[in-house]
Each structure stands twice: as structure tokens, then as C-alpha cells.
Nucleic acid binder design. Structure first.
Lengths: 134, 134, 134, 134
DNA sequence: GTGGTCTAGACCACG
DNA sequence: GTGGTCTAGACCACG
């Protein structure tokens, strides 16, 4: 069963936490193509959050092709497709990655340590990254 | 000589750029314990930035124990270094990294591509990677 | 001077009207790269509309690469870049175009009339479509 | 025999798909004045759709003068055809078309590409283009 | 029941 | 001054 958990009063905006968790659920296979995700109002009630906040998160997931809405039935996990050009993908990844790498360096991690750390965290998505291997 | 460079109109807040650069300079050895750093007004003038922005950055650096103020003489690199335990460093890096990695996978990057990307972006901190090697 | 006008109580959502008008201003050359667009709060006051509505419109324009925000200075017309893959562009154009073509047919327009109509309306963007000719 | 086909889970509301298909059928001559159209409940059963949806579509068609109800006998294609003046038709088409064209230009399509795209999409209404040719 | 849009107003971050 | 996020609540469209 797909569960969302948010921490309030922290640094990460609520809607971004939701976006991230749905994305993780999809890339780790906890959610499969066609699976329904909680309705906007139901999730808002469950998380004790305004429904606009959920709507904003879902809208972003739709824009990125992760989910899609079906006429009054709700949102469902979408078939994966390439939306952005390679240059745009690179630009987005760099924009997201650079502040994190900067923080890692200030925390005292060396290049090798960071690379090992990234590799370790990526193992959680192993099934996603090997889908093209026979 | 210690130099700060900021990029305006970007996504990273100016005060954070200053904080990060001072921290990186300390971690990589460009700044040593006791070294003076530019005064608030001098740096504000040099970067053509509101001096409140510089003051905010320095306040955060003092809070984090990276620099300290000496009454009326200015700011200097503090002797205190390790603020967080290794476990806490790992926890913070994981928290910052995970959403980026899930976005990378969603964008279609493979594990190898992400690792190569990280390595490339890390070259901007080249000297940081040699501080721990004998 | 760049002006936005909305019609309320109609069929088109306010935020979409704003998106369209900024887009038209850019592709017709009324707004050039680097030009500022009205601030969120200023435009909200001028149109007697909630600022969230303006923010939503601007966020969509940012996502599509039409404008970009600069650190506390406001929004500016962005340099044009290719964000979406060709397949995604085709998908988006088809999704936007099909309902309009269906309406045109039900209004009694023939294929030739529709094509002539499209060509006529496109002349307003003539300067935009010829930028690559020497 | 007159057939309605709907695509569920898409972006176009079901009731609008029905309205459009009846209008297109009338404009292209597939349905003639006085022809019966399926009853609300029959069509609802055939399309596996809520009968309120069918009723809503038929109500709109009645409002637009495309069909009329004959007490207890069902709905029939009405004689009345031209509702809007040519100027009004042009105004409506322009209002619907302009936002799509500005989006197309923003997506990077040239005038020629847009015209070719429109022509291609219009082929789905092939018979519509020959109704006015002798 | 589903989602979409909008308002009025609050509080925060950045400069 | 700029933009970003969120709430509480309303009203609408679609089925």
C-alpha cells in the first residue's frame, strides 16, 4: 500500500515532499504503470494539509509525465516517456545537484567519498536502472 | 588571497553562495585558522551587494562555528572545525541527495550516467579531493 | 509598454489568459529577451486579481522557458531554448489543436478555409518565424 | 448507421466528445434533417457511460439548435442550421485558435510546420472538406 | 464522488 | 521592495 509521510515546519516545502515521495515510489516499483494514487482531497485529509497543496504537487508530477489524470476518476501512474531534451535534462540535473555537492564538500566529504555515497544511495533504484538489460 | 565570486540572477541565494564559498575555502585549506576574512562593508562594496546580505552570511558562518568575530577587529577563521558527527553528516547528505537522485532517475539517467555527472560537477572543487590523500 | 487585459466570468481561466498574453507579447517581439515583466503583486493589483493567480501563470511561463526569475528582482523574458523533445512538442500541439479543429468543423469551416484562417492568424507572428533567415 | 465513439481517460470531456461528433455528423451529411439519434438511455448503455452525461450533451445540442426533442418519441436532427453569422464564426475560431498558435510558436514550430500539422490533423474530418466543393 | 480555479489573507525568504 | 508557500473556504465542471 502506497503511503505518503510529510514533516512540517522543516525546510522542504510540503508539496515538494509529496512530489519526491511519489517519484521514489514509481522509480522503486512500489507504484506501477496504471496504479491509482490517492485522490487530492483524500490525501489532503490524511496529511491534514490544504487540498491546494496536494493539487500543486500532483500538477508538477503531471507536467513531468510521472502521473496523469483521468476524467473525474483521479490520478494514475503514467507510462514513462521522454519529455525533455537531453540538454534540458542536463540543465535540470545540474541545477538540482550543484547545491547538494556544495553542501557535501562543506560537510567535509572528499570527491571519492561523495561518489561512493551516491553509488550507495542509487542502489535503492537498482530495478529501475536495469530495466533495459535482458 | 581569498576571493569571493557570486553569480547574480541565478537560483542560488547570494548569501548562501558566500556561506558556501567561505566554508569550501576553509575545508580545502585556502583559508587557515586565524586568517582574516573581508569586512562586511568591504565585501559588500566589492560584490556590489546589500551589506545586510553579507551580514546574514557571516552570521550563519558564526552560528556554524566556521568564523568568529573579534571585537572591532573583524572576522577570522575559527579553530573549531568538526560540528557534526560523521553519522549526522551522512544523514544530512542523504537527505539532500535522495530527492535529486530520484529526479535524475525520473529524467531517464542511468546509474552510470549519474555517477559520471556527479564526478564532472565535482571537478569544480578539485582541490577538495586531495586534502585527505597523503 | 506591455499591457495585460483579462476578461472575467468567461470560459478561459484568468491564469491562462495571462500566460497566453505574455507568450504573444514575446513571440511578436513586444517583449524582448531580458525585458522585465510586471511584478506578481503589481500585476495582481492592476488586474484586481489574487496574487496567487499571477504566481501560477508566471510559474507556468517559467516551466516553459518563456521567462525566468532573478533573486528578488522579479521576472524577465528568458533567452529562448529548446526544452521539450520533438515528440513532446508534437503531442502538446496535437492536444491543444484538436479541440479547436473540431470546433472549426462544427462551425461549418472547410479544410481549406481553416488552413487559410490559420495562415492569416500566423502572420501576426511573422517576425518570430523568420528570425533564422539572413 | 450513426455511430458515436468516445475515448475515456483522455483530456476531452465525454459529453463534449458526444456533442462534437453529432455536430460533425450533421455538418458532413452523415446525419440529415429529421434523422433520429440514439435515445439517452440506449446511448448511455452502448457507451457504458452515466446517462446524465448523455443528457447533458443532448441538452447542449438542443440549446444550439442542432437537434430537437419530439415529445416521447426521442431526439431528431433539427432543420435549423446556421446559428451564428459568419463574422461570429470567424470571431469564435480566432479566439480559440490564437492561444494554440502562440503556444505552437513558443514550442518552436515554424509557420510552414504549423500549417502542415493542421492539415494532417484535419484529415480525420476528411469528408468535411468536400461538402462545399461541387 | 473526482479535479480545477480563485479569493483573502497570512507568514516566510531574500535583498 | 521582490517572489514562494500555505490555509480555509468557496464555486465550478465532469460523471
Amino acid at each position: 500500500m502506497f503511503q505518503v509521510q510529510i514533516t512540517t515546519g522543516g525546510d522542504a516545502p510540503i508539496f515538494r515532499q509529496i512530489v519526491d515521495q511519489v517519484r521514489v515510489a514509481v522509480v522503486t516499483g512500489k507504484l506501477s504503470i496504471g496504479d491509482p494514487i490517492p485522490s487530492v482531497r483524500a490525501l489532503a485529509a490524511e496529511l491534514v494539509v490544504n487540498h491546494n497543496t496536494i493539487a500543486k504537487a500532483y500538477a508538477q508530477l503531471v507536467r513531468d509525465g510521472v502521473i496523469e489524470s483521468q476524467q473525474g476518476r483521479g490520478y494514475f501512474v503514467a507510462r514513462k516517456r521522454q519529455i525533455y531534451t537531453q540538454a534540458e535534462c542536463n540543465r535540470r540535473l545540474a541545477a538540482a545537484l550543484d547545491p547538494v555537492l556544495s553542501e557535501a564538500v562543506t560537510l567535509g566529504f572528499s570527491t571519492d567519498q561523495i561518489l561512493a555515497f551516491v553509488e550507495k544511495r542509487l542502489r535503492r533504484y537498482a530495478n529501475a536502472s536495469t530495466t533495459k538489460d535482458p
